[in-house]
């Protein structure tokens, strides 16, 4: 990416990571992908009572080229899936995805052939947010949790190691039914 990627790992890189993480999280521009009912709660989260502008997110860019965070709000139908992927591909790195609502996270109550059963079939998701629709406070809570993730993102050599660790952890997780003591 830039100069910060090439810094040798050590104290300087970790300081740069903290500063860059802080800068990135305070100005996340959402590319609101409002599909269905969750979009209404998304709109009201931008309204005066729960103000997304407090988090630096008032400039919701309609253009994905200038967006950081894609909030998939609502049911994704099979017909809309390639469009979602195209918009996601048009976003520049670093980018994050919040699956807002049960329909975006897992298909929700629409367990049928027309709705994609979770947008993680199409794009990689960072935060899953349950609710039908989630309250504005729940959306803000998920954005705060995403901010923690963004603050702790690593650069350069650290990032490669972090990616390897996350992948190994994901490969090792057993499904719930095999986790033995699950009740």
């Amino acid at each position: 990416m830039g100069l910060e990627e090439k810094l040798p790992s050590g104290f300087l890189l970790s300081t740069v990571e903290q500063v860059a993480g802080w800068a990135r999280k305070n100005s996340v521009w959402p590319a609101t992908f409002g599909l269905a009912c969750c979009a209404i709660e998304l709109m009201s989260t931008g309204g005066p009572k729960h103000d997304l502008a407090r988090f630096g997110m008032e400039r919701a860019s309609a253009s994905p080229r200038q967006a950081d965070l894609m909030i998939v709000a609502g049911r994704l139908s099979q017909k809309m899936a390639p469009v979602l992927r195209q918009i996601y591909d048009q976003m520049a790195e670093p980018k994050w995805v919040i699956a807002m609502g049960v329909c975006a996270s897992s298909g929700g109550m629409f367990n049928n052939y027309a709705i994609v059963q979770g947008v993680d079939h199409v794009v990689p998701v960072d935060i899953y947010l349950p609710g039908c629709p989630p309250r504005p406070e729940m959306l803000i809570d998920s954005i705060v949790k995403l901010h923690d993730k963004i603050q702790n993102m690593k650069f350069g050599a650290h990032r490669a190691k972090q990616i390897d660790e996350l992948e190994l952890q994901a490969l090792r997780t057993l499904p719930l039914i095999d986790q033995g003591t699950a009740k």
Partner: peptide, 30 residues
């Protein structure tokens, strides 16, 4: 919770009032 629509029909169905709903809503996870 990624399928639950928080409708409360399960609370209405429970014969022993074992299942109730709290006011907790901070459920997002990764």
């Amino acid at each position: 919770y990624l399928r639950c629509i928080l409708c409360g029909l399960c609370i209405e169905a429970c014969p022993t009032r074992a299942l109730t709903m709290t006011n907790e809503y901070e459920l997002a996870d990764s």
